[in-house]
């Protein structure tokens, strides 16, 4: 690079710095390296930008601010200017520039939160107060003030809403469970708890042993067949229809050989009462009794 190009580049850099300085801002935006670069990083930077080592003019490292993070940086408070020694002044290119957003976020993470009274229902620990005035003056502390979580109000659970206990893990207390009436079993559960008795086995059903394996070398177990009552007659054998006329059957006749005695078969007990009036008076009494 020639000297002329070098001078032009420096002038462009100076113009850009002046333009940034004259920009209408509430505060000077300056990137603040919170952690100085390490020795190795400085050596690397030095080797990469050795051409800028001859620069004698001290410059403030200005990091251009993105437009979208402007509001956060405005709220960040006063800037801190750090002066570096001449030999440590390096001109950084785009790779070495850390955006203001990242810096701001890092500052917010490292800064103590503003002391604020925590609501009674909040479990989030509130940041402890700053121990030193320098710590309290850090822009990080005011860059993004922590807001306490909203106080949780009491909501009455709706009776109509129901949640699955197994899913939510929230279960009712034992007292409420004891006071509550026992739930009626649903139809499906009831059917499971009270199974219908199996139908009586059919007469033809038999409890057969499981079939033996096909290629088993063990002797086959004796099959025990359980049958019901032998109420049904065995099936009639199949009879072929006769084609020839059968001969007339001849019955075997057995006749009585012992004669039956006819005497004293019936016994007459007494006799039929007859009315024999002895005189006219008896007949008159009999007819008047009718």
């Amino acid at each position: 690079m020639s000297a002329k190009e070098r001078v032009g580049k420096l002038e462009a850099l100076l113009a850009r710095i002046q333009a940034n300085a004259s920009a209408p801002r509430g505060a000077t935006m300056t990137a603040i390296p919170t952690v100085p670069p390490s020795a190795e990083a400085r050596e690397a930077l030095r080797s990469e930008s050795s051409e800028f080592e001859a620069a004698t003019e001290q410059e403030h490292a200005v990091v251009p601010e993105p437009e979208e993070s402007r509001a956060r940086l405005v709220a960040a408070g006063p800037t801190v200017e750090v002066e570096f020694e001449e030999e440590e002044v390096l001109e950084l290119d785009e790779r070495n520039v850390v955006s203001a957003v990242e810096v701001t976020e890092m500052a917010v993470a490292a800064a103590p939160a503003k002391e604020e009274e925590a609501p009674p229902s909040s479990r989030r620990p509130i940041a402890e107060p700053a121990e030193s005035p320098q710590e309290a003056e850090l822009p990080i502390a005011t860059a993004a003030p922590l807001t306490p979580p909203p106080e949780s109000g009491k909501q009455v659970a709706s009776e109509s809403l129901s949640f699955d206990d197994d899913f939510t893990g929230v279960r009712e207390s034992a007292a409420r469970l004891q006071s509550a009436p026992p739930p009626e079993p649903s139809i499906a559960l009831e059917s499971l708890r009270e199974p219908t008795p199996p139908p009586p086995p059919d007469e033809l059903e038999a409890d057969l042993a499981p079939p033996p394996p096909i290629f088993s070398r063990e002797p086959e177990p004796e099959v025990e067949v359980v049958r019901g009552d032998e109420t049904r007659p065995p099936p009639a054998p199949f009879v072929l229809p006769r084609t020839e006329k059968p001969a007339a059957p001849k019955p075997e006749v057995t006749r009585p050989t012992t004669p039956v005695a006819a005497s004293d078969v019936a016994t007459l007990a007494g006799s039929v009462p007859t009315f024999e009036p002895r005189n006219f008076g008896d007949l008159l009494d009999a007819t008047l009794s009718l």
């Binding site: 005189n279 006219f280 008076g281």
Partner: peptide, 10 residues
């Protein structure tokens, strides 16, 4: 006498 008599007498 009539009552004690027979049917023929009566």
């Amino acid at each position: 006498a009539l009552l004690d008599g027979g049917l023929e007498l009566a």
